[in-house]
């Protein structure tokens, strides 16, 4: 019973983080900032959700799958966002006009 309650609380927290990530996706100005919201909030939110599922179901086929998937999400999500950010930058997507610095563009011009 205790683990069930804790699990549901963690699932709710995870969904709340997912929601904040989605709000960020809409509100932030450019690709890179949106990726920030998408990777951080949504990764942690999803990991929390899966961990909550593990707590509710315990050590069995469902719980362990959820736990392993949380690990995969934690590794795959930053890798994916890194690929997207790099691809966007190489593809010529500009930073938001309010950005203060872009060393990456400056140094690539020199080469």
């Amino acid at each position: 019973m205790f683990w069930d309650t804790l699990g549901y609380i963690i699932i709710v927290v995870g969904v709340a983080f997912d929601l904040l990530g989605c709000i960020g996706l809409v509100r932030l100005p450019d690709v890179y900032n949106r990726l920030q919201a998408a990777t951080k909030c949504v990764t942690l939110g999803t990991a929390f959700l899966l961990f909550g599922v593990f707590l509710v179901y315990g050590v069995n086929a469902i719980g362990i799958k959820a736990l392993i998937c949380a690990g995969f999400v934690l590794i795959a999500s930053p890798t994916g966002s890194h690929a997207l950010a790099r691809g966007a930058h190489k593809g010529g997507v500009k930073l938001w006009e309010g950005s203060v610095i872009d060393t990456y563009a400056d140094e690539n011009k020199l080469n």
Binding site: S99, D102, A105
Partner: peptide, 26 residues
């Protein structure tokens, strides 16, 4: 630190003025 990161980004996202100062550093 991941949890701190999330609270930080969440704060920036829901703050009405959107306090960001983005850039790419090396």
């Amino acid at each position: 630190y991941v949890v701190l990161a999330n609270l930080d980004v969440a704060y920036r996202v829901i703050h009405p003025d959107l306090p960001i100062r983005p850039g790419i550093v090396k």
